[in-house]
């Protein structure tokens, strides 16, 4: 691999990182609007508000970046980067076609889940350094939520890794067969739900519950730093949707042209899963903090354990 190749791959990752989240954001604007019998953005860019997020970005860039007087300035300024960058790093390991990965790690699942969890540290930093009680509460809730949902998330991913016999995301995609859909259905449900919670997306958005915590850890942020947190949220949706697609829906596998159109199959699956994320957001009310914790420990963890047990039994029997 020459340096040029590496640069091209990284540039590709960066490009995906900067465009697909915007696509999801626009989809959220429009899908949510129509689910609520509204039109959503209609004027930015001329055609059905396609440039709304570009306009938003320009607006955010123009705004003053305010740091509260009592805030821990350096931590406060660093937090958006810590929240955003992990998702960029995870993109490197996502396979977009047979043999097409920016870098095929042999411990891909492990790497992806470990790095994605770093994002919450950015949120904790934001919550702590803001010197604001709402921010602090939101940050701690985000931390508690990660604690609770990381376990089912990892267990569900472990089940797939066991079934495939490898931790490499590329290897898992190769090993994937269509009958894994019913076989790993419980795991997929657990992984996707836990991913929603890790992203602090509704109905698991207790950390940013705007009616009680203003905007949780992001309350004090303005301008570009605030925009970065929003971008982190949508990048997170893309990354987790892509991970779910790779682990449970066969990644780049499709009905035809897997070698040429692998990236398209993955993109379609990712966008479909992102749509479900938006759909759930529009449909369900927020879970209360205790319900949220209870759901993780009483429902998701046992389900994930059952899935791991099932996969283990099947592996032993068929081996």
């Amino acid at each position: 691999m020459t340096a040029l190749e590496v640069a091209a791959k990284l540039l590709g990752c960066l490009l995906v990182f900067l465009t697909v989240p915007l696509l999801v954001g626009q989809m959220e604007h429009k899908a949510m609007a129509h689910m609520q019998s509204r039109l959503g953005p209609m004027y930015a860019g001329g055609f059905h508000g396609w440039a709304q997020l570009v306009a938003d970005g320009v607006k955010f860039a123009q705004k003053e970046s305010v740091v509260p007087a009592r805030a821990d300035r350096r931590v406060f300024e660093l937090a958006p980067a810590v929240a955003l960058l992990p998702y960029l790093f995870v993109l490197i390991t996502i396979p977009v076609g047979p043999g097409q990965t920016a870098h095929d790690l042999s411990v891909g699942v492990f790497f992806a889940l470990a790095v994605v969890s770093v994002g919450v540290i950015g949120v904790l930093m934001a919550g702590w350094s803001s010197a604001n009680k709402y921010s602090l509460l939101g940050g701690l809730r985000a931390g508690a939520q990660l604690m609770a949902y990381e376990l089912p998330l990892v267990l569900a991913a472990a089940s797939v890794a066991m079934a495939a016999g490898t931790l490499s995301l590329q290897g898992i995609t190769h090993a994937w067969r269509w009958w894994w859909l019913p076989y790993q259905a419980v795991g997929a449900f657990v992984f996707f739900t836990a991913a929603l919670a890790e992203l602090r997306r509704p109905p698991f958005d207790m950390p940013v519950a705007d009616s009680e915590l203003v905007f949780g850890p992001f309350t004090e942020y303005t301008g570009l730093r605030f925009a970065l947190f929003l971008l982190a949220e949508y990048a997170g949706i893309v990354v987790f949707a892509a991970l779910t697609a790779v682990l449970f829906l066969g990644g780049w596998k499709g009905p035809f042209f897997e070698h040429e159109l692998g990236w398209l199959w993955l993109l379609l699956k990712t966008l479909a899963l992102s749509f479900i994320v938006i759909w759930l957001r529009v449909t369900y009310p927020r879970l209360r903090e205790d319900q949220l914790q209870r759901f993780a420990w009483v429902a998701l963890v046992p389900l994930a354990l059952a899935q791991v047990a099932l996969t283990g039994v099947v592996r032993v029997v068929t081996a």
Binding site: H34, S37, Y284
Partner: peptide
Amino acid sequence: GLLQGLGVTLRSMTKRSVTRE
């Protein structure tokens, strides 16, 4: 009830929105 809720949002997405420009 959860599934019914999903049905409601999906159905209203396919209907014409009520917004007047």
